[in-house]
Amino acid sequence: MPIVLMILGMSVVTYIPRALPAFLLDKISISPKIEGILYAIPYAALGVLIFPGILSVDQSNPIVGLAGGGIAIVLSYFKLNITYVIIGAVLGVIVMKMFLL
């Protein structure tokens, strides 16, 4: 199979989960119970997306990702704009890698 066909296949299976709710949501009405779950899901999803993935920021040193996350926690705790939180964490990780490697 040529790579282009594989990419086409990948794009189809990537688009289906994204598009399906656009079709289904008109047909079903959302109960308060489901609505409650939909409100809690961002927190669940974000938690799962952050950990353990953050450990793999540096494959050989999980501590690098954790420390970067720590910087993000501190900066966001002091209510810095999210752009600065990101820049601070990235700079922190770059500096750490410079000293660890």
């Binding site: 974000l46 997306l49 952050i50 993935g53 953050i54 793999s56 920021v57 540096d58 690098v64 990702g65 970067g68 996350g69 910087i71 993000a72 926690i73 900066l75 966001s76 999210i82 939180v85 990101i86 601070g88 964490a89 990235v90 922190g92 990780v93 770059i94 890698k97």
Partner: peptide
Amino acid sequence: SMSIALYAMFIGL
């Protein structure tokens, strides 16, 4: 190594 950016964003959110 800059993939920390996305995690930092999630934490900030």
